[in-house]
Computed example of a mutant assay.
Amino acid sequence: MANNLIVMTWNVENLFPPEDTDTSAADTYTAKLTYLAGLIAGTGADVVALQEIGSLRAAQDLRAALGEPWQAVVSSHPDSRGIRVAVLARHPLTEEAQILALPPSGLPAVPDVDGDTLTHMGRGALQVHVDCGGAGLRLLTAHLKSKLLTYPGGRRYPLNEDERARGAGYALLRRTAEAVALRVHLNETLAAAAIDGQPGMPTVLCGDLNDGPDAITTVLLEGPADGDVNRPDKGDAVRLYNLGRRLPPTGAYSRIYQGNGELIDHILATRDLQLQLTTVDSLVDDITSIGASTRSREKAVVPDHAPVVARFHG
């Protein structure tokens, strides 16, 4: 890893290129790219984990707005709306893994509201290697199932309270299975690269986890509990630390939903990076409160999530 490293995660909210004939949408898209690129460049970020990228073109357009030497790697597995994760970096990038299946050693099959069985993540996760000096950086980005509920046939409303309860349960099951899939992947990846019980390469997991830092779906991604970060133990090889726990209390959120701040965008890091952490910030100044309706967001330039930025020293 380079002597100093800045890592960002950001859900950029439905970054879709417009239709060629929609001039109004084209103006909004251009303004949004300018905003995104300006904020990323202003932080000095080395690598950015992105969620809600609408297509390969959208990622390339943002890369072009940042200019040289930025590079992009994009997930091949979007959800039904076409949104996916991606990584941008101003260092050489190598794709290492596209993570999609719910593994046999995790929760390999969960039910959904239509009576089907889910065997894959709704949105694929992505693992890359960032060549930023030394051994480099291993980075994973993910976007887990949201708390927005759907019901049989794609309905957005329940027919009764039993169905509402089932819908919430199905959503939680899916988000849990996706978090377990990531943890199983990390267990294998980190353990395989461990040297004398320590991670072989600095590693971060970034993304919109759609749950707070104390939710079980987030906590299980940290791996084994740690009594003292300053004392090495046998869990260090696979453990991650949620850097959001170091956010200033006044800025410990990344989205404002119906007037309430919530931290659902996270950066989790291996022990070596945790010990090198200088600051972590959520850049919340520009975001505003949102509600359940998405129609009012169609012409929004500023995403509904704030970027979370971690700075490390060598």
Rank of each mutant, 00 (worst) to 15 (best):
N4M: 11
L5A: 05
M8L: 11
N11T: 04
E13C: 10
D22W: 00
T23Y: 03
S24A: 15
S24D: 13
A26M: 05
D27H: 13
T28I: 14
L39E: 12
I40R: 06
A41W: 06
G42R: 02
G44A: 03
A45K: 08
A49H: 12
A49K: 11
L50G: 07
Q51A: 15
Q51D: 12
I53K: 07
L56P: 11
R57C: 08
A58D: 05
A58I: 02
Q60S: 13
D61H: 12
R63G: 00
R63H: 09
A64D: 15
L66Q: 08
V74G: 02
S76E: 15
H77W: 11
P78W: 10
D79I: 03
I83F: 02
I83V: 15
V87G: 00
L88K: 01
A89F: 07
R90H: 03
R90C: 09
H91N: 03
P92G: 03
P92I: 10
P92T: 09
A101C: 11
S105V: 12
G106Y: 07
A109Q: 15
G115M: 02
H120V: 14
G122L: 03
R123L: 06
H129V: 07
V130W: 00
D131W: 01
D131S: 13
G133Q: 05
G133Y: 02
G134V: 07
G134H: 04
G134Q: 08
L137M: 03
A142T: 15
H143F: 08
K145Q: 15
K145P: 11
K147L: 13
T150G: 13
Y151F: 15
P152R: 00
P152K: 05
P152F: 10
P152T: 00
R156C: 09
P158Y: 04
L159C: 11
L159K: 13
N160V: 01
E161G: 10
E163Y: 08
G167N: 08
G169H: 07
A171N: 14
L173K: 15
E178I: 09
E178W: 00
L182E: 02
L186E: 06
A192F: 00
I195F: 04
G197N: 07
G197P: 04
P202C: 02
T203S: 05
V204Y: 00
V219G: 04
G223K: 02
D228E: 08
V229W: 13
R231L: 13
R231Y: 10
D233N: 10
D236A: 10
A237L: 09
G244A: 05
R246C: 11
L247M: 06
P249F: 02
T250Y: 02
T250P: 07
S254T: 14
I256H: 03
Q258N: 12
G259W: 04
E262C: 11
E262H: 14
D265E: 01
D265G: 06
L268I: 03
L268W: 01
R271V: 08
Q276W: 06
Q276V: 05
Q276A: 15
L277M: 12
T279E: 14
S282A: 15
D286G: 03
I287H: 07
T288S: 13
T288M: 11
S296F: 10
E298R: 14
A300K: 13
V301W: 00
V302T: 10
P303V: 04
A310W: 04
H313R: 12
